[in-house]
Structure formats: C-alpha cells, structure tokens
Computed example of a mutant assay.
Amino acid sequence: MTMFELPELPYAYNALEPVMDEATLHFHHDKHHATYTANLNRALESHPELAEKSIRYLIAHLNLLPEDIRGAVRNNGGGYFNHALFWDMMAPEGSTSFGGPVAGQIEKDFGSFEEFKKKFSAAAVSQFGSGWAWLVWNKDHLEVLSTANQDNPLTEGKKPLLALDVWEHAYYLQYQNRRPDFVEAFFRIINWDYVNELFEDAKKSRKCGAAE
C-alpha cells in the first residue's frame, strides 16, 4: 500500500516571522499535519485497491470511496491535502509579489485587488468555528468561498488556488482570539508565484478536460 508522507516545509520554521512564528509552525506542521497523515494512511490500509490513487483523486471523488473509510478520508485526507497546499501557498515576506496572470483575473472577476482582499478576508473571519477560506477557479472564473473543518473545494469540482487555515491551531499561540489580525497579516506572506502556477494548471486542465 502506498503510504502518504508528511511533506517537509519549503522554508525554515522561522522563515515566516513575524507573521507566523516558529512555535506555531512547529506545532502546526509537526503535530497537526503529521496526525492527519498518519490517520489517512491508517484509514487506507484496509483498501489496497486505492494504493495508486493520488490524494487529489481521493478528495475529488469522496462519493466513490468505500463507505467505511469515506469519513476518515474526508477529514484526514482533507487535512493532509489542505496543509500540503497551505505550506506552499506561503513564502517569506518580500520574496514574492502580487502579479502575473492571476492578478489580471482577480481584477477582472473582483474589480480590484482590494475588493478581492475584502471578500477573502470576510470569508476567513466569518467562518464559524474551524475551517478554511479559499480562492478557487470555477470553470471560467475566480470565486472566494469558505469550507468547514477540512473540506476542500475539489469535492465541488473547483480548483483551489489560495487557502487560509482558520482553525485555532493555525494562529492561537501567536494571535490568541484575534483572527482578523491573523487574516490581515497573512496577505504579507502569500506566495503569488505558486498561486500563479496553480492558476495556470487549473486553466490548462479545464481546457484539456483532464480528470483529477
């Protein structure tokens, strides 16, 4: 059975400071992401027929999975995949900047970067309890949405381009109950280079009719 592995962070644990401190990254990556990884592998042990399936396939086709592991894959597979995206969607402050094809699409679909930021921030701040805020590509346009727990837009056929984890473990050590401050600070460490890569891939797969 192919086992999913905990990906290493693409930067040092202190590289996102002062926006996200070293203690939070250790706790978030080494504990929470590691637990989702272990639980996902445990859930899949009883179904070797799924050994060759990618995590994108599993998340996008939850309704096709065996019922006895569907919930575990939704929660733990979602946690594994969402966090793997999340780490790459961030970069040290000042290392990337807003621009490229996705910038043009944001201006087209939202009117301006500021309008997009308002919508994305509102989705993150207003998400009740645990969940995520997302920028997604939906067929031919961008959308902002939020999901509960570890759900992912792939299950709705939408392609994630940018995500913000608003579970308390993502920010509470540093920001306590000040989620709006965390959301505002997040915009300083977005990896726009990676967002553009995901945007180009999303458009390409749509044109080619590629399956996940």
Results as ranks from 00 to 15, higher is better:
77 G>N: 03
92 P>A: 10
162 L>R: 00
178 R>Y: 04
123 A>M: 05
95 S>C: 11
104 G>F: 05
127 Q>A: 15
122 A>V: 02
154 L>S: 02
116 F>H: 03
156 E>T: 08
90 M>C: 10
117 K>R: 15
94 G>T: 05
185 A>L: 01
183 V>A: 14
113 F>Y: 15
182 F>N: 00
82 N>C: 13
138 N>L: 12
136 V>H: 02
165 D>T: 06
172 Y>E: 15
124 A>D: 00
106 I>W: 04
153 P>Q: 13
153 P>A: 14
92 P>N: 07
151 D>N: 15
158 K>P: 02
194 Y>N: 11
95 S>W: 01
194 Y>M: 06
85 L>Q: 14
164 L>T: 01
158 K>R: 15
122 A>W: 00
147 T>C: 11
128 F>L: 10
183 V>Y: 11
93 E>L: 11
75 N>Y: 06
107 E>S: 05
159 K>S: 14
123 A>K: 02
107 E>F: 02
92 P>R: 09
139 K>N: 09
140 D>W: 03
96 T>H: 03
108 K>V: 12
93 E>P: 01
88 D>S: 10
191 N>Y: 01
78 G>N: 05
74 R>A: 15
156 E>N: 13
181 D>K: 03
116 F>E: 04
74 R>I: 03
124 A>P: 00
167 W>D: 08
109 D>H: 03
77 G>Q: 02
143 E>M: 13
97 S>G: 12
80 Y>W: 08
120 F>S: 06
117 K>H: 11
84 A>H: 05
180 P>H: 15
159 K>P: 00
158 K>F: 13
